[in-house]
Amino acid sequence: MQALIGTSTRLRSFIQDPRHFQIVFLGGFLTYGVLALGWDSQWMRYATLFGTCVGIQTIFIRWKGIPWSSLKSAVITALGMCLLLQAGSIWTLVFGATVAIAGKFLLRWKGRHIFNPGNLGIAAAVALTGDAWVSPGQWGSGAMLVFLVVASGSIMVLRVGRIDTSVAFLGTFAALVYIRTVWYLGWGADVWWHQLTNGSLLLFTFFMITDPMTTPRSGKARWLWGMGIAVLAFAFSWHFWIHAAPIWALLLGCALNPLIDHLMHGEPFHWVRPAPHAQRTF
């Protein structure tokens, strides 16, 4: 009985923190990619990203005296980067992961980091090194994958209260692509569906853009922000023919966050309901 109560308490504390869900889901997708989609099992790549993210986070934990539980965020960043970022050399990955984590502590505005860490790391590695890339086609457009990402993603965004951002982004993006592809150009709806069910786009929708730490605090602002990022991503994709457009759109979106938070106020987010003495979260 004692053991049962113990297990139940552990389970409760496990599910209280949405980051645990995120780690399990992202880890599941990585496993799926390696085992089912036949990605190269680049263990060195994964180990480098994990090692760097956790290592840099540890340095900042010791330096700034913040809780060790923030390591979970570093693990999530590492998983996200494993899923998206490809590079020719491990030093490029070290660079990307360092920028991702260090950016969280160094690029701050009123006690809050500005950029989504994984997004910043990926963008920096791709734009600055010339040795990194993102493969938007690596997931394909399978129906099962859509179900998995949408189902797990919905749990995730409901849990952190960011369903508004996902819906605003995906809804706007889907509508714009529909207007262009089906109404304007006259392709069949299956072309639109194929564009929309791209695994990378869905992962982005549910697991990257929804990071509660780098979305606007006000609910209304999040709707507008999600829609704005969709418009940017659409323009980048079809006007400038940029692949992995949502990554660049989110980077710009995050850069605007201090201004948005200044104009539209909202409650700060905490991964776990804060104790009376509120602590800084990373």
Partner: peptide
């Protein structure tokens, strides 16, 4: 086979949630 595994895991987590 892998899908089954991932689906099972998902079901477990939904249940826990």
């Amino acid at each position: 086979g892998m899908l089954g595994f991932v689906l099972g895991l998902l079901a477990l987590l939904i249940g826990a949630y």
